[in-house]
């Protein structure tokens, strides 16, 4: 699914070098100041040199990513109709206001906006640590195995590579409300449940299914990235620690964790982005039921745009979402990098 793939695509970035922008700044400091004309000519020459490699990708990016997003900004400030040739009057911040007026009032636009937003935040709080911890633990276990490493890696990775639609259908199936569904059956056999639950029809069970789904599908990816990072830690450090009499737990906290900090940061950013962009799970499993309490932002925006035709409002919500995620990522980057330096 594209939308999620967008999120997944960003999930694979920058593993080794988490601080590109500042390094770039340093690189741009000129040794001595050239005149404007000289600098311009130099810049032009540099651009000409890079253009053969850059042009195709950059053009496609501008056309298919940047232009639509700039247009989104325009849509967000207008009362937009998709009919060709229609007038799209400029409405200022009207669309943005709607997400804030009547937050407490049951049934208003803002009310459901904030429920969806809350669910995204909860998803971040649950699925990000869930995937990180599970992924890291499994990675460490696999790393310490003598044989069978690859088999386990493949098994845990299958869920990651499977189609979202397929996996969503499986989850829909095993969480059906009757006695015969896999989850109800097992939990009843284990006497955890007395009677079958309609998982996808209740607020919190529905949310939990969405979260468990995300963790189940995502932790394999975390595991793969971590196993790779673990291979990069030198064995000498562990041997030295063993001689000093450190326990396995101590080694984990004092050697392993600090060594994979860069990877952790990279995973963190991407998992947060992923959790904020949850869509397919909701779109195919709960549709936000009951009463919009399992809704998430992406589904909210989708419904507003494509069921209600409120493109302006949907675009405004999307824009606010993007700014929020971007700011969070930047803050996190500052914060974590600060820790790294000291």
């Amino acid at each position: 699914m594209t939308m999620y793939d967008g999120a997944q695509a960003c999930v694979k970035n920058q593993a080794t070098e988490p601080c590109a922008p500042s390094s770039g700044k340093g690189g741009r400091l000129p040794v001595k100041k050239d005149s404007l004309a000289v600098r311009f000519r130099k810049g032009l020459r540099q651009w000409l040199a890079v253009l053969p490699f850059l042009s195709v990708g950059l053009v496609l990016f501008v056309v298919f990513v940047l232009y639509p997003q700039l247009k989104n900004i325009y849509i967000a400030f207008s009362e937009y109709s998709i009919m060709p040739g229609s007038e799209n009057p400029f409405v200022g911040f009207e669309n943005f206001k709607r997400a804030f007026i009547g937050i407490k009032e049951h049934g208003s636009d803002a009310y459901y906006f904030w429920i969806a937003f809350r669910n995204n935040l909860l998803a971040v709080l649950v699925t990000v640590p869930g995937q990180m911890v599970l992924g890291l633990l499994v990675a460490v276990m696999i790393h310490n195995l003598k044989f069978g490493k690859n088999i386990y890696k493949i098994i845990f990775y299958i869920a990651v590579i499977c189609d979202w639609v397929v996996v969503a259908n499986i989850f829909d199936y095993i969480f059906q409300p009757d006695n015969g569904s896999l989850v109800n059956f097992v939990l009843m056999k284990l006497h955890i449940l007395k009677e079958p639950l309609a998982w996808l029809k209740e607020t919190w069970t529905g949310n939990w299914v969405i979260w468990i789904f995300s963790i189940w599908k995502g932790f394999g990816w975390v595991m793969i990235i971590y196993t790779a990072a673990l291979q990069g830690i030198s064995k000498d450090m562990y041997e030295a620690a063993t001689i000093d009499g450190a326990s396995s737990v101590e080694k984990f906290f004092y050697i392993t964790l600090p060594s994979v900090r860069g990877t952790t940061f990279y995973l963190l950013i991407n998992l947060i982005n992923g959790a904020m962009n949850i869509f397919i799970q909701v779109f195919l499993l709960t549709k936000g039921d009951p009463v919009g309490t399992t809704d998430v932002m992406m589904n909210y925006i989708y419904t507003r745009a494509f069921s209600y035709f409120e493109f302006g409002y949907a675009a405004a919500c999307g824009l606010m979402m993007g700014i929020f995620v971007f700011t969070t990522a930047m803050c996190l980057k500052r914060f974590l990098r600060y820790g790294q330096d000291t």
């Binding site: 059906q176 409300p177 009757d178 006695n179 079958p196 309609a198 996808l200 029809k201 039921d289 009951p290």
Partner: peptide, 10 residues
């Protein structure tokens, strides 16, 4: 009616 069991067909 509220998505509980048994579903309508069953």
């Amino acid at each position: 009616t509220m998505g509980g069991k048994p579903d309508v067909s069953n």
